[in-house]
Simulated assay, not measured.
Amino acid sequence: MKVLIDQDTCVASGQCVLTAADVFDQRDEDGTAVLLDDTPPADRAEDIRRAAAVCPAQAIRLEE
């Protein structure tokens, strides 16, 4: 799985970080989501899918 974030679409809600803090973080200056790991291990797939689903801006895209 490859994870992508559209930082221009991100609204800095932090839901992705709450769901998968080992994969997502937020920039200190504006809260925009950043990826810590764009190819997380398979055992994290469920949480990554959940993070994409709860993103209010739909800024997270997954390539499986």
Rank of each mutant, 00 (worst) to 15 (best):
R27S: 00
Q7H: 05
E64K: 05
V23G: 01
C16M: 08
G31K: 08
D30P: 04
M1K: 13
V11G: 06
D37E: 12
V23W: 01
C10D: 08
L36K: 13
R50F: 10
I5S: 08
R27P: 05
V34H: 03
D47M: 15
K2V: 12
A53K: 09
Q7W: 02
L35D: 12
E64W: 09
C55W: 05
D22N: 13
D38N: 15
P56K: 13
V3I: 13
A12N: 02
V23S: 00
P40G: 07
L4R: 15
D6T: 10
A21E: 13
D28Q: 12
A52I: 09
V54T: 12
A21R: 02
R27T: 01
G14R: 03
E64V: 11
A52S: 09
V34M: 12
V23K: 01
V23H: 01
E29R: 04
R50E: 14
E64M: 07
A20S: 13
F24R: 04
I48H: 11
M1P: 04
A33M: 07
C10N: 02
Q26A: 14
L36D: 03
Q7Y: 03
F24V: 04
A42F: 01
V23Q: 00
D38K: 07
T32S: 08
E29A: 06
D43I: 01
S13A: 15
C16Q: 03
A42H: 02
V34W: 06
A21G: 15
D28S: 13
R61T: 15
L4C: 10
D43Q: 02
A20N: 01
M1W: 08
R50H: 10
R50N: 03
M1G: 11
T39L: 11
D25T: 06
R61P: 00
